[in-house]
């Protein structure tokens, strides 16, 4: 067993884990944060995307022990005061989800795109930047619309962004 201490959604967490525990397993099994999903074994699908120190990563390809002393944000940690994050709201408004399984990873990836590429995102940029996220339901059409709209909405709520 190895001890890990990290901050998850603003809360300090310390636990003894088997070193082979993946970050996604730690989040799901130890912390019961089951919004982060697993959809493949080969680091392709992106259902497990969380933010590690503010950057989108595939939590199925990070050991929990590698995240020691780091800051993790999951889908459960982005809405505040019961109000949806603008990107969450945009996915709902633009029907950017169907079965919901890829959605947490998509939303975390989308926020990361905005953090890196800004609030004015064209379709080509969004499609390119979604390279690491698979959706089997939507054909991506409405995800692309949702990301573009969510990005614009994030520009109008700078305080919320900073808090993330």
């Amino acid at each position: 067993m190895t001890t890990v201490s990290l901050t998850v959604n603003g809360q300090s967490v310390t636990a003894d884990v088997d070193p082979r525990t993946l970050l996604v397993q730690f989040l799901r099994d130890n912390l019961r944060l089951t919004g982060t999903h697993v959809g493949c074994d080969t680091s392709q699908c992106g259902a497990c995307v969380v933010h590690l120190n503010g950057q989108a990563v595939k939590s199925c390809t990070v050991l929990a022990v590698q995240a020691n002393a780091n800051i993790v944000t999951t889908i459960e940690g982005i809405s505040q005061g019961g109000e949806l994050h603008p990107m969450q709201a945009a996915f709902r408004e633009h029907h950017g989800l169907q079965c919901g399984y890829c959605t947490p990873g998509m939303i975390m990836a989308a926020i990361d795109i905005v953090n890196r590429k800004g609030n004015a995102l064209d379709e080509q940029t969004i499609r390119t930047e979604l390279e690491g996220n698979l959706c089997r339901c939507t054909g991506y059409h409405n995800i692309v619309k949702a990301v573009a709209a969510g990005a614009q909405a994030m520009a109008q709520t700078p305080l919320r962004q900073a808090a993330e």
Partner: peptide, 19 residues
């Protein structure tokens, strides 16, 4: 109509079998 189920899905509160 915007979907009623989306509130739980976009907040990570969906409940799938493995959950």
């Amino acid at each position: 109509v915007r979907r009623k189920e989306d509130q739980r899905f976009v907040t990570g509160q969906g409940r799938y079998v493995d959950d």
